[in-house]
Amino acid sequence: MSEHEQDGQEREFDLRWADDAEHKEPSARARMLAARWKDNPPGPVPFRPDPDHRSRGRRARSRSHSRSSWVSTAVVFGCVAAVIVLLGYINFRAP
């Protein structure tokens, strides 16, 4: 058995051994958050905001967003149509 094959088998054994471990150490981020939350636990955060938090500004932003979305779509389709017409014109002019 070559040295490369032996290294591969040892690494595979180590990975299986690590995966089968009963106790797994938490990541550095998990340890950091646990230490931070031990003294100052985070408050509850709702999955979705309450419906009464919506404001007129948000509705106006949403209308503006949908308008800009349509404008972007129209520009893309216009560019595609222009390229198709240009290619058709070039092919028509070629003998």
Rank of each mutant, 00 (worst) to 15 (best):
A28I: 09
A60I: 02
V76M: 01
R61D: 07
V80L: 03
F92W: 06
E25I: 08
H23E: 10
V75C: 01
S69W: 04
R36A: 15
N91F: 09
R36V: 14
G43C: 06
P41S: 04
K24Q: 14
M1N: 11
R63A: 12
V75Y: 02
G78D: 00
A28E: 11
S55L: 11
S62D: 05
S62I: 03
R29V: 14
E10N: 13
S55H: 08
G43R: 11
A74L: 00
D20F: 03
E10W: 11
W17A: 07
R58L: 02
G43T: 10
Q9V: 13
S68I: 05
A60L: 10
R67Q: 08
Y89T: 15
I84S: 08
D7C: 10
P42G: 07
A60Q: 11
D14E: 14
R59V: 04
S69Y: 06
R54V: 13
G8T: 08
R29P: 03
V83L: 04
L15T: 08
G88F: 09
V45G: 05
H65Y: 07
I90G: 02
S64T: 11
H53S: 14
R61V: 11
A21P: 00
V75H: 00
E3P: 08
A81Y: 02
S66E: 04
A28Y: 07
A30F: 04
E22T: 08
D52R: 13
W17D: 11
F47N: 04
R58A: 06
R58W: 01
S55A: 06
W17V: 12
A82Y: 06
I84V: 15
E5N: 10
R29A: 15
A18N: 10
L86A: 14
S2M: 07
H65R: 15
D19C: 04
